[in-house]
């Protein structure tokens, strides 16, 4: 029965007959060669067993009543201790919840998100403004310090200038000149140093 079935399929339109067709081709080639024309029943059976389609079906049909439906035991029947029955809170998902994206469309939840975002942004802006002010203060302080330093430098410079001026004045004071003339009078020499004179005959 098995070898005839695929041959039928090959003749017909069904796509099932692909393997059957090949078997026909095989038998034909065998018949063309020196091989015996008929196939022994035993061989045919073994061939059909090798095929995925044919005899397996009958086999399964025979094996079905042999398979016993496994009984499923409930947990109570098995008597498993309930210690390991805890499901962690993060793992357990409540039933009947929406799968996939959760849309936010109602004004209340939108407002909630907005308030969170706004609070964050406000915080950022505040910190930015505070930082800017702080930096500005530091800059002002530095500027003042630099100004004070330059003022001090200037005043020192002025002082020194005045000092120098005073010194100059002291040298050119009339009292000082008088003292110098007195000195020369005492020595009996003029203020001018003596010039060397050279005479030629």
């Amino acid at each position: 029965m098995a070898p005839t079935k695929p041959a039928k399929g090959a003749k017909g339109k069904s796509g099932k007959g692909k393997s059957g067709g090949s078997s026909i081709r095989a038998t034909k080639s065998k018949s063309a060669g020196s091989a015996p024309t008929g196939i022994s029943k035993r061989k045919a059976k073994s061939m059909s067993l090798a095929k995925p389609g044919g005899a397996q079906r009958t086999k399964s049909a025979t094996s079905e009543p042999q398979k016993k439906k496994k009984r499923k035991y409930s947990e109570k029947e098995l008597g498993i201790p309930t210690l390991n029955g805890i499901v962690p809170a993060g793992v357990a998902k409540p039933k009947g919840q929406k799968i996939g994206k959760k849309f936010v469309d109602d004004p209340a939840s939108l407002m909630a998100i907005m308030s969170v975002v706004n609070a964050e942004k406000e915080g950022h802006i505040e910190s930015k403004i505070m930082k800017a002010r702080h930096l500005e203060e530091i800059r002002e302080a530095k500027k003042k310090e630099a100004e004070a330093r330059s003022d001090e430098k200037k005043s020192k410079f002025e002082e020194r200038k005045q000092d120098l001026k005073k010194k100059k004045n002291r040298h050119s004071e009339p009292g000082a000149e008088k003292a110098a003339t007195e000195k020369t009078a005492k020595t009996g020499k003029s203020a001018k140093p003596l010039r060397k004179r050279v005479s030629f005959g």
């Binding site: 994206k101 959760k102 936010v104 998100i113 942004k121």
Partner: peptide, 12 residues
Amino acid sequence: PLTEPETKTLFE
């Protein structure tokens, strides 16, 4: 409609 993270980035 927008999802929650999408709404957040938009609002930000």
